[in-house]
Structures are given as C-alpha cells and as structure tokens.
Nucleic acid binder design. Structure first.
Lengths: 257, 257
DNA sequence: CTTAGAATGCGTCGTTATGACACAATGCTA
DNA sequence: TAGCATTGTGTCATAACGACGCATTCTAAG
C-alpha cells in the first residue's frame, strides 16, 4: 500500500469514517540549538506548508485523535498535548483554491466532496523533546520538517493564525507551568533552560535572577555532573524532580490570591 | 408560530440548516445578592436541567453562534463571551436516554436522526450583569432560570463537567483580568467587588489588602457618591475607568517575567 | 605552560509587592 | 445620643523582584 494510494483512499472514503465538520491541527513545538522550532508538513495538494492535522474517527475521542496525529507525525506517544482554541470562522478555507490544488495533483474532486465542506478545527499544541522525534510525512504530504519559529512565512489557510494563537497560549502558560520539562532532554544546564524561556518569550532575561527564580520553584535537582566541552566554565547539569514537579503543578506555581 | 412548532421544526429540519457534529454550550455567570449564579434551562425532552446551548448554522461563525444563543437566552447583546474548552469524548451523550426522553414528549425519532448523532461541543462562558438579563426559555425548553452555583445538582449529559471547567477557567482568568467589569453594575462598592472575588475563588480575602491591590491596578474610578441606606458607614461607589481598563487588559495585569 | 577571554556560580542592595493587623471615621438604630 | 457594625486609611515585617558586582572555572591562543 503506497502512501499515494492511502491518500486517495482517504479522499474517497473520508465521509464514511470521519466525524463530519470537525478537524484538528497540531502545533508541535521543539527546541533545538537554542531555537524554538515548529513541525510543519508540506501537503501535496497545496503550495504552502501547513500544520500537521487530521480528522476524528467516528468513534474516536477528540483528544485521542490528536494523540494519534502526533504519534503518526513524530513517533512519540507520551507527550504534553493540550487543546488551546477552536477556530470556527465560516470562511476559514477557500474552496476554490482547494479544488485547484487537488486538480494540480491530478485528483478531480466534485463540488460537493466532503473535503470541500466547511470544517471547524480544534487547535492542539504539543511540547516534544526534539531529539526523540522522527519526523514522518503523512500520506497526504510530501515533506515534514522542523521550522525555526522566526522563519515561518505564509502558511496554508489560517494555520499561521493558529500558530500565533498557540504561541500566545504557550507564553501565558509559561508563567504558570514549568514548561521546560517537556521540551528539554532529561539533563540540561541552567543556561539552556534560560535560553528556552528567552526564546519563547522573545526577550532576554537576567541570568542570575532567572536562576534564583527557577531554583526557587524547588522542582529542579542539580546533578553532580557538569557539561564539559563548551568553550568556557562547565555549567552544572539539572533534571526535574518529578515528585516535587507534579506537586507544584497541582497548586499552580505562582500568582493567585 | 408557537414555540412548540418551532421546536418540532428544528428537530425535523436541523440536518439541513446546521453544521453537523458541532454544538455549543454556554455557561452564563451572573452575580446577585452576593452569590454567583448560573443560568440553566429545563429542556422539555429531559428530566435534568441543562446549559443553554445550540447549533451552528451552516454559514455562521462559531463565535457568532454563541453570541446568538446568548442573545436569545438573556436578551443581552454586547457581553463578555469566551470560548474555553471543547468537549469531544466519543460517548458524551447517551442516545438511548435521548430517544426515550423525546418519546416522553410525544416525539418519535428514528434511530438515524441527526439529533442522536455524535456531537462535539464547544464551551463558552459569559459574564453578564444580572439585572440586565431577561431570562427566556428557548423553543425546546420549558423553563429558564438562575441557579446558585452551590445548589446545582446533576445536569444533563456532561454539562456538570462543562460547568466545572468553566469555573476553573474563570478562576484562572481572575488573576489576569479584572473580571468584575462584566459582572457588576456600572456603579458598585468595594465590598461588593470583594464579595464577587470571594465567591468565585471560594475563599475569604483581607478587606484592606484587597482594596490596595484593586486600586493598585489603576482601573477604578472612585465616585463622589456613596451608597447610603445600608445599616452602617456608607461605602464609596466605584466604576471602571474604561480607558485605563482597556489599556491594562492589553498588557495583562500582573505576573509574567 | 601560561594567560586572556568568556561564561558560570554565588551574593548584595534597594525597591516593590504581599500578608497581617491597628485605629479612626461614618451612618444607622436603639 | 450612645452603641455598634462596617468602611477608610495607615503601619510594619517579610518575601519577591530587578539590577548589578565579583570570584571561579573552563578552553584556546600564544
């Protein structure tokens, strides 16, 4: 079964197996070489890059569908995945463009085809450990790769807007959750953690205050090892103290009355 | 056109006019006599009270649909309305119960009727000024009234869960937004505002610290009037300074790096 | 081998925000 | 007119936060 065949199969049979009107799109964040990355796919039927997304099987939970899409695209099972917004404008997609795109691929689609119907899409964002990901194009895509957050141009349909909303949400959550756990390898240095925050927030932070605040949360374990090999003083390695981490999450980290 | 007739019409024609698979439910909060209230409806076809909800017309934006439902139920146009979560479990509703409920109403529904299909529902919460609301049952409901947040028992389907999630969201947002603007009348006293916060957060707050913090936001105007008639010292009346209010909202009130 | 450069570990200081509480002022009621 | 509950305002100690200094450690250049 070639991907191309599956692609055509999905196009032909989708109406029977998927929940109508509903789709989902995933904003998959990774962190690599001090840059925040997003996983995008190049759909066959469009000129633009797009967020990996999919449809919901008729008997499938929405969250399970998102988990499935993520697994398919990244190979990772157990990751941080969170629904953040529903995009429900009546004119989200441009049907004429869709049709002509499919035509370019040599696929003729009738005017009442289910893919041309209106969809309301649920946005999920995921935080994944970059090194663990095996990028995998889906059957309808010809490519799948990480993009630097700052180098992303126009995207398919309203996907750019979805991405921006995911980033906004991530920035808000950052003040409440020690997000780093999901984006960094198990062992990491304080400068790496700081760079992650700086990248997401798009601003520089004071090195010493950052360290004080982070350690103040009480969810980090400083290991006895250091990261040698850099051109300068070797920084300590840290890892998250899962017991305290979970405990802190339950209460919320700061803020509140 | 009686409501009953409209009800039957909707049941008959819904498949043609609504977006399939998608519904929305509104958690409408109000504040009255120092109690947080939620507007619930008693659907004809069920024994339980339910959140006011509805479906999305085929050419209607999701947000517009929510605004429409709200307008129909409360008579209010321009209110604070925010999407907060999508509920997408495959087994959200119990079809057998639905059918038997309709049967009780004397309405026979075939096993493939659109109302028995699976729906993914988008939760919205609204903050409204209690006194401005004219509660209005919709065509499928026999009653519509305010419930004290603490006196709500079991609800229709997963609506209790939706309500809880709305409350959680409201509590989170409370730390970022001066929610009071939408729930209180234009003029209000500091004790009233405090009571609102205490009710939502379900905890008592120090009177003096609360006042310091609230005024510290710089979004309140203290009026020259006081609220006479109480049995004690007359408290000052306040109102929101909309210019500063909007400005503050843009930046987020506190927290953050 | 030595040293310069650069990054890290650790601490200080003044300011601001926060929590706990005291006391005076006000307005109804008895 | 006195009593009392409630509101307005202020104080104080402590914690949190932002800005910054200085010593330490590692690599690489000389």
């Amino acid at each position: 079964m070639t991907p191309q065949k599956t692609f055509r199969e999905v196009i032909a049979d989708g109406e029977g197996i998927f929940q109508p009107s509903v789709s989902l799109d995933c904003v998959i964040f990774g962190f690599h070489e001090n840059e925040l990355k997003v996983l995008l796919i190049k759909a066959k039927a469009t000129d633009h890059w797009a967020l990996p997304g999919g449809f919901v099987f008729k008997e499938e939970d929405l969250d399970d569908a998102a988990t499935r899409v993520l697994k398919e695209r990244t190979g990772i099972d157990d990751i941080f995945l969170q629904q953040f917004h529903v995009f429900g404008s009546a004119n989200r997609s441009d049907w004429n463009i869709h049709r002509s795109n499919f035509k370019k691929e040599g696929i003729e689609i009738g005017p009442n085809h289910w893919l041309l119907k209106r969809f309301i899409t649920v946005g999920y964002y995921a935080l994944v450990e970059f090194a663990h990901v095996i990028t995998t194009p889906d059957s309808s895509s010809e490519d799948c790769k990480w993009w630097d957050i700052n180098e992303i141009g126009e995207l398919f349909m309203d996907h750019k807007q979805i991405l921006e909303k995911a980033l906004d949400t991530l920035r808000l959550q950052l003040n409440h959750l020690p997000i780093g756990y999901n984006l960094l390898p198990q062992k990491f240095t304080m400068p790496e953690l700081q760079k992650l925050y700086e990248t997401i927030l798009n601003k520089t932070l004071d090195r010493r205050n950052f360290q004080r605040r982070m350690t103040g949360f009480g969810i980090l374990k400083r290991l006895k090892e250091t990261r040698k090999g850099g051109a300068h003083r070797a920084p300590f390695l840290y890892s998250f103290d899962m017991r305290k981490y979970r405990k802190a999450l339950k209460q919320g980290l700061h803020g509140g009355w």
